[in-house]
């Protein structure tokens, strides 16, 4: 089992509904975000291209954040989801420094927080909140090892990329192009 997400950059309009849905679902403190929107404008007018991406922790297969953690608070659970146990975290910031995507932040309560792939929902067979709420249905979630899962289906016959693969993290959020 390997959870992953595929996001169609051609369908995403950057409405940030996923950001708000996550903040509500996961009680993210005000002013913080576990997911966010990046807009990339490339080229020179009139030949410009716009890419909009909904980003979050990539639940990397080779997660430097887990390796950097001195206490084991950052760990990998079933399906490759990277999580933090607040009661083990000392707030040293090593994992924050080690994430090439800056997907983590220091929760006002002291421990480190980040996207959990909504594993509390996934356990019940639901999609993560961001995926469920997307008005353009541009996000697909599921088990990459299962060829009939939403995410595997979405990636079939499509070109896709991951972010900063040169960082060697083997990220598991894919962007369909």
């Amino acid at each position: 089992m390997r959870y992953a997400m595929a996001i169609d950059t051609n369908k995403c309009v950057g409405c940030a509904d996923c950001v708000v849905a996550c903040q509500t679902e996961n009680n993210v403190p005000v002013g913080y975000a576990r997911d966010w929107i990046a807009e990339i404008v490339a080229g020179t007018y009139p030949n410009v291209e716009l890419e909009i991406r909904s980003e979050r922790c990539n639940h990397c297969d080779n997660p430097p954040c887990v390796r950097a953690c001195p206490t084991g608070a950052s760990h990998v659970v079933e399906g490759g989801i990277v999580k933090v146990t607040p009661e083990e975290c000392i707030g040293c910031g090593a994992c924050i420094q080690s994430c090439p995507y800056d997907a983590r932040f220091s929760h006002p309560d002291g421990y480190v927080d980040k996207c959990t792939f909504c594993d509390h929902r996934v356990k019940k067979g639901q999609d993560p909140a961001c995926v469920a709420v997307c008005p353009t249905k541009c996000m697909y979630f599921g088990d990459l090892d299962d060829p009939s899962s939403d995410v595997s289906e979405a990636m079939k016959n499509r070109k896709y990329k991951a972010l900063a693969p040169e960082a060697g993290t083997d990220p598991h959020i894919f962007y369909l192009m």
Binding site: A42, G43, D102
Partner: peptide, 18 residues
């Protein structure tokens, strides 16, 4: 070619730079 990136993320102590 120019690349302009804007991110909607503004987490304290993470953005605009760590």
């Amino acid at each position: 070619t120019e690349e302009l990136l804007t991110s909607g993320r503004m987490n304290p102590n993470i953005d605009p730079y760590l």
